[in-house]
Structure formats: C-alpha cells, structure tokens
C-alpha cells in the first residue's frame, strides 16, 4: 500500500488552464520524497491540489489507497494529511500554545499527551509557548509551522519550500528536524528549490517540468544526474 499516490493529475486555479498537467507520483510509507523542478514547474500547485486548496480537473489522489481527490482541505486534515505552506504558515495573532491547541482540536483522542510529545520534539517551542507566533524568527516560525501540521497526527506531511527565506544554518536545523519527524513514522513529501539540501535528506526525488513529472529516481541518482543540473541551470529546452 502506497502512502500517497497521484495519478495523471491535472489542476490549476482557472478552469481550462491547468498548471499541473498529468503528473503522477507514488510515495511509499515512511519515505521522504523531494519534489523538485525549476521555477514555475507547478510544484507548489501540485501539493496545494493534493491538499485540497487548488481545484483538480482530472486524475486521482489516493491517500493510503483511499480516493481523496477534490476533498475539502479541512476534511483532509482529519484524514491524516498535513500541509505546511511556504509562507504565512502560522497564525501570527495566536500564541505558540494556541496555534498548536487549535490544530489539536481535530484529534479524536485527548490532546494533552499529543501536545506533550510535540513539545518534547520541539523543546524551543515549549520554552516560549506563551509567545505570539508573529514575534518568532524565521527558523522558529518554520518549526512551529511543522509542529502545527504534526499535531493532528498526519500519516503524510507535505511541506512547500520549508527552506525559503532561511539561512543555510537554519535550513540544516529544519531539515534535521524533518528526519526526526520521519523517525516517528510520518511519510514526508517535500517541495524544494534547494535541491542539494532536499536530496540530502530525501530517499527519492521527482523532477517536475512544465506541470508534469519528467524524472523520478533515488536521491543519490538525482544528485548526480546532469539532466537535473541542466534543468536548474535553465538549459532545459522543453524535451529530454
């Protein structure tokens, strides 16, 4: 059973103008898969469509073999799909505690233990739990965004460019934390521009070009693939 399967997905903001054009992707349980690609390739649109934020016009999304295509985003959080947007990914007018408490409201079990587990995983957040999220630094904010998405015990966690706007040192800290998250049994899908950092923690990668999957392989293979490097250096000419 795959954790997440995307089959020939077409999605876009305007009817008749798909940005994601027939993308397919399979993510195995407890895997970290990096979705890579040049600017405008449709990476963010792909995971937003999976998360129920962008209309899907064709294809299927299966979460643990259950068809979740086109389901409302708030239902998907209950189904076990976590999503961390690239920007504006915490509630800046709520405290750290309230951000997590609100996310925990979808749990069917008592939330105290879950919050305790998360504070153990993110001790920095535990120390400042009364602080307003809007006052956090970029790295702390990203940690809170990941923690917020994890509260609901997702089976699959999707992150949209978690390294955006962070210093290389903070990128390292955030990505290390993602390895800790994977160790708790969570499957991770990572959309990234920072290819080197993403492939360093990913098991496999998929390269998107013009809305469809162009290359799929292990992280090691992709890291050494000249075609991937060419795509990022802007040498792509539309067919390879």
């Amino acid at each position: 059973m795959t954790a997440l399967r995307v089959v020939d997905l077409e999605a876009g903001y305007e009817p008749g103008l798909p940005i994601v054009r027939g993308t397919s992707l399979a993510v195995e349980p407890n895997e970290i898969v990096a979705v890579l690609g040049p600017n405008g390739a449709g990476k963010s649109t792909l995971i937003k469509a999976i998360a129920g934020l962008v209309p899907v016009s064709a294809g299927k999304v299966l979460l643990h073999d259950r068809d979740i295509t086109g389901r409302a985003a708030h239902h998907l959080a209950h189904e076990g799909l976590g999503f961390v947007p690239q920007t504006e990914n915490v509630f800046v007018n709520l405290s750290i505690e309230d951000n997590l408490d609100l996310a925990a409201s979808i749990l069917k079990v008592p939330k105290k233990q879950r919050l305790r587990d998360l504070y153990d995983l993110f001790p920095d957040l535990a120390r400042q739990r009364r602080l307003l999220a809007g006052r956090l630094s970029g790295g702390q904010r990203q940690m809170l965004a990941v923690a917020r998405a994890l509260v609901g015990e997702p089976k699959v966690l999707m992150l949209d460019e978690p390294s955006a706007g962070l210093s290389p040192k903070l990128v390292g800290i955030v990505f290390e934390k993602l390895l800790d998250v994977r160790a708790t049994g969570v499957t991770i899908v990572l959309v990234e521009q920072n290819v080197k950092a993403a492939l360093a923690i990913a098991d496999r990668g998929a390269v998107l070009v013009e809305g469809s999957t162009r290359i799929v392989g292990t992280a090691r293979d992709l890291a050494g693939d000249p075609q991937v490097a060419a795509l990022y250096l802007g040498q792509h000419r539309g067919g390879s």
């Binding site: 998907l76 999503f83 947007p85 990914n89 915490v90 509630f91 609100l102 979808i106 917020r148 609901g152």
Partner: peptide
C-alpha cells in the same frame, strides 16, 4: 487558507 489545512 491555513485555517482550512489545519482542519478548521
């Protein structure tokens, strides 16, 4: 939008 993906 974030509220939606948080399950609200």
């Amino acid at each position: 939008q974030l509220a939606r993906v948080t399950g609200i």
